[in-house]
Design a protein around this nucleic acid. Sequence first.
DNA 1: GTCTATATCGGGATAGAC
DNA 2: GTCTATCCCGATATAGAC
Lengths: 224, 224
Amino acid sequence: MFKRETPKAAATAHRILEAALDRFRSHSFDSTSMRDIAKAAGVATGAAYYYYESKEALVMAFYQAASNEMQPLIQAALNQQGSFEDRLRRLIEAKLNYFEPNRGVLRALLRSGIDPKHPLSPFSDETKPIRDTDLRWFEKLIETSDLTVPADLRPELPGLLWMFQMGVIYLWVTDESPGQRRTRLVLELGAKAVTGLLRISNLPFTGSLRRQALDLIQAVKGVE
Amino acid sequence: MFKRETPKAAATAHRILEAALDRFRSHSFDSTSMRDIAKAAGVATGAAYYYYESKEALVMAFYQAASNEMQPLIQAALNQQGSFEDRLRRLIEAKLNYFEPNRGVLRALLRSGIDPKHPLSPFSDETKPIRDTDLRWFEKLIETSDLTVPADLRPELPGLLWMFQMGVIYLWVTDESPGQRRTRLVLELGAKAVTGLLRISNLPFTGSLRRQALDLIQAVKGVE
DNA sequence: GTCTATATCGGGATAGAC
DNA sequence: GTCTATCCCGATATAGAC
């Protein structure tokens, strides 16, 4: 996690991560111990902890690497023709599809994800770079659509779409329906609903309702 | 957990639970071991496990006791005069006020709370009785108000209000602002927004929007 | 039925030698 | 950078006292 200057160190770190993922997939996150991982990687347990400060950090490292690899896939999803609704859905689908083989592994991140103070939480300071990268994609999605968004809502919109995405991912990770069909349906209906709300938000008589919602958002964000 | 026929046994069980909560509060949930708890309660470790089969079980007992003790407080909050909005807010405030001394304890439980399969999660099968008790209070709140709710929305409303409550509690548990003022503001604005939306939902031209929202809810709930 | 005392296990994580 | 040895944890098991 910290020092990877030498090629040897990088190789060791990589080997540990691969061994861990392999175990997580074939057995499960919980039933895989750090001793197992270290053994499979051919290092001592202490060495595993030298590179990854916790078992969950291994999953986070995977998530991080995945985020990088996903960039071109997201770009491709956004490049496709289609309405705002279609492209919003496809952006999120691209992520789900990419993570598909490791859905069970991601489930392990749930535990740390909920506490905003936890370093591995998607809401934490430590994961801000990943979040910002994500936000820029939603930014881009909005910019490259023909949607007209009320000025006061505009700055909040990328964050709101990001929250929608997080909700879908949460549902997906915990979704036990075959092939996660439930999540697919929610994504479809959700993208439709979000788009519908955005269209409505342009109508003149919705101003006071929108301001009310924005005030609530500001309060949740803790802006005085 | 099993046999508490004799008063002595009940007293011991109670003593262990109190010692545990005391430790959770003064130190923290994670840093308190079963050995600590047993010691503080003046019993052997085995005795603690005799009454509570796991550390988790202690938390369940805490949930259950809290739920029981809160019943009259919630009743009192609902009995007060006021609009739907006021009484919704006061119902939730009653819970926050009750949990105040154990806010930190609840925070430690966030981790398990997020996974619906975890026994301690508010969404789990194990906590269903507590959840159902909660739902009945929201039911009562709706019944005893002058609100007219569209027929299709009506069956979903208690659950929606419960979700709103859970959102507020989540915010409160993670709220670092002095005296959790942020949460209080969100609760105020949120209750207002919820009530406003309910009033609007009666207007004729909101039907298609409402049905869209209800479809989304059904999908999230996994109803085919 | 209600405990005490103790030993044991595998888990995550760490300290300090090398 | 890496390893060995160790710590503490939750949990289980057991044998026996009252």
